[in-house]
Design a protein around this nucleic acid. Structure first.
Length: 622
RNA sequence: GGGGGUGUAGCGAAGCUGGUUUAUCGCGCCGGCCUGUCAAGCCGGAGAUCGCGGGUUCAAGCCCCGUCACUCCCGCCA
């Protein structure tokens, strides 16, 4: 009892509000019994004129004239203007005057057309208003840390600290709604195509491949740990062995790696797997789903099938395995002219089996030294030692940068690159991959600077024929390029052991506008072939048995040929909505160090909890 | 692990190469006025350890060093 009183006093002191201003809320118990809404704010129209309606929502904006008070009332559906006029009873006028931003209220009133001159064409419900004759304050709201839908947006820190308020803004409401609609459309389509939605565990065995696992300690078996799944990969393959034939899940995935704008420690995939299929079947279903989503959510027609681009071609022409194909600006091989030039740097690289790649920046001949240096920085970030350049003059001659080494073959260079007067020529010479990737980054940068991509366009493409393995320089061994269970293409089977680097797999990515949206493969279902792949990677059967024994065992019992794909749901929504980071489309995201400012996690835990788990925290030595 | 950017009232910003005393503006907040607004308006008011610590200087929001937080990128992310 004493405690209760003390608590109330503290509360009053803390809010710093005078009790009187809240009288409206306290002298009437805020019950929904008599004030349940009959309509949604944003859906009122003149067809309800003269009708009595009850609305529930939040005080979005407030304009108090003493005698007359305008309340912009907001709910999920939108905003409508409610008016408390001077002819209202004094108690109602007082209660209206006591309102503040974001009070949660119920109003009863009649819908009426606004006089012609007082209509607001900016508002969906701007032709009407609700004349209020009853107003209930359901709950009050303290001074806000930032305005909902204010003129200036709060910084992300503050938005995440008060995420529940940030989510009230129309921008966030729209994004989260679109996310929901997309998930629904995906389900609708996949269910229609015979897929079952099946959940898989979130506590699984740790299989230390790929990203770091998040671990969950077992209390019942001290010293042992579960891992959170990086994706439902193994389980969905097991579901194929089980004979479900078509599985999907909107699945949460966890990877303990450093965050980025497009990466969170936990994220969502539309994950699917199909039996008795080739990659074409996976493409067809994915394209169909994308088309369905665009129709339902974006109200637009998406052209299918998507373009196919082999990985090697993507790297060579665009310097990226996720190129933005909304613009050309392709990289060209400059090996032949470079070999004929007097430029020793290029010739040395060529002699070492490197590549010289060229990029024609149209109309950038006037770029300043500073602008070129900026481009060079971009190339260097991706491992290039430098960015060579020269300009094509109005007369079609080469000038500046490395031009002097190409004097003799100037005409050939210009013709070879199809360069025009006023263009800037850019070159990276390096190991093949570095040359492509670094100049590819310059291409991406130029595309943005020159605004070459039309916003609002969505250009999808399948990147196909990824290599099965990539060489790990540090460890001096072959690593799986994507994952361990991807199927090598049949025509490369003979060279699996003799020339692993040349083996292409039935591995594919779906890219759109320079974003990697999805990744998948046809899986190995033949234990013998799987064993060969393990051998190339250097995994002994004993080790494979230890890590994936359950999967290998399952594959002894008549596994169907199968394959699938996982679509990065957050990235997909980010793309549809056109925002910069996936945090903008996740209701409660983590920041770049994996923390949530709202609930302050991760956090320390009680000694007791640690003891139960027989865990000990070792302080870092300084 | 590495590189870049940012940090000034509750929120968003300004504060030029160090020097006008009480660090400015808009929103919000508090008080008052106001019967048709819709980013309402008008009058008055409160509110800032200039992220934190140290240093240089006669003088630091501004320069230097360190540190923390947030953010973007490289590495990493089968």
């Amino acid at each position: 009892m004493t405690n209760g009183i003390f608590f109330l006093c503290v509360f009053a002191a803390k809010t710093g509000r005078k009790g009187l201003s809240h009288s409206g809320a306290h002298d009437r118990f805020p019950s929904m019994e008599k004030m349940k809404r009959t309509h949604a704010c944003g859906e009122l129209s003149l067809s309800q004129t003269e009708k009595e309606v009850i609305l529930n929502g939040w005080v979005h904006r407030l304009r108090d004239y003493g005698g007359i008070t305008f309340i912009n009332l907001r709910d999920r559906s939108g905003v409508v203007q409610a008016v408390v006029e001077s002819d209202a009873p004094a108690a109602l006028r007082e209660r209206a005057a006591s309102l503040k931003f974001e009070y949660c209220v119920a109003v009863r009133g009649t819908v009426r057309a606004r006089p012609e001159s007082m209509r607001n064409p900016e508002m969906k419900t701007g032709d009407l208003e609700v004349k209020v004759f009853d107003l209930e304050i359901l709950s009050t709201c303290e001074t806000l840390p930032f305005m909902i839908d204010g003129e200036s947006e709060a910084k992300e820190d503050a938005r995440l600290r008060y995420r529940y308020l940030d989510l009230r803004t129309s921008a966030m409401q729209d994004r989260i709604r679109l996310r929901h609609e997309t998930a629904f459309a995906a389900r609708e389509y996949l269910v229609g195509r015979g897929f079952y939605e099946i959940e898989t565990p979130t506590f699984i065995r740790s299989t230390p491949e790929g990203a770091r696992d998040f671990l969950v300690p077992s209390r019942v078996q001290p010293g042992k740990f579960y891992a959170l799944p990086q994706s439902p990969q193994l389980y969905k393959q097991l579901l194929m062995v089980s004979g479900f034939e078509r599985y999907f899940q909107i699945a949460r995935c966890y990877r303990d790696e450093d965050s980025r704008g497009d990466r969170q420690p936990e994220f969502t995939q539309i994950d699917l797997e199909m039996s008795f299929v080739s990659r074409e079947d996976v493409f067809e279903v994915t394209e169909g789903m994308m088309r369905h989503i665009f129709k339902k959510v974006m109200k637009s027609d998406l052209a299918v099938p998507f373009r196919r681009l082999p990985y090697d071609e993507a790297m060579s022409r665009y310097g990226s395995d996720k190129p933005d194909l909304r613009f050309g600006l392709e990289l060209k091989d400059f090996g032949a002219p470079a070999a004929k030039s007097d430029f020793q740097v290029f010739k040395t690289v060529l002699a070492a089996k490197g590549l010289v790649k060229a990029l024609v920046a149209p109309g950038c001949g006037e770029y300043s030294r500073k602008q070129i240096t900026d481009l060079e920085e971009t190339a260097k970030t991706y491992g290039a030692k430098g960015l060579a350049w020269m300009k094509v003059t109005k007369e079609g001659r080469l000038e500046g940068g490395v031009a002097k080494f190409f004097e003799k073959i100037a005409a050939e260079v210009v013709a070879d690159l199809a360069a025009k007067p006023g263009d800037l020529l850019l070159f990276v010479a390096d190991k093949p991959r570095t040359a492509c990737v670094a100049l590819g980054a310059v291409r991406t940068r130029l595309g943005a600077d020159l605004k070459l991509a039309k916003p609002g366009d969505f250009l999808f493409a399948w990147i196909v024929d990824f290599p099965l393995f990539e060489y790990n320089e540090e460890e001096k061994r072959w690593d799986p390029a994507h994952h361990l269970f991807s199927m090598p293409q049949e025509k490369y089977l003979d060279m699996l052991e003799s020339d692993p680097g040349s083996v292409k797999a039935d591995l594919y990515d779906l890219v759109c506008n320079g974003v990697e949206l999805a990744s998948g493969s046809i899986r190995i279902h033949d234990p013998k072939l799987q064993a060969r792949v393990f051998a190339v990677i250097g995994i002994t059967m004993a080790e494979a048995e230890r890590r994936f024994g359950f999967l290998l065992e399952a594959f002894k019992y008549g596994p169907p040929p199968h394959g699938g794909i996982g679509i990065g749901f957050d990235r997909f929504i980010t793309l549809l909505v056109g925002v910069a980071t996936i945090r903008e489309v996740i209701a409660f995201p983590k920041n770049t160090v994996g923390a949530s400012a709202m609930d302050d996690c991760p956090s320390s835990v009680d000694e007791k909890q640690l003891k139960d788990l027989r865990l000990m925290v070792i302080e870092e030595e300084k």
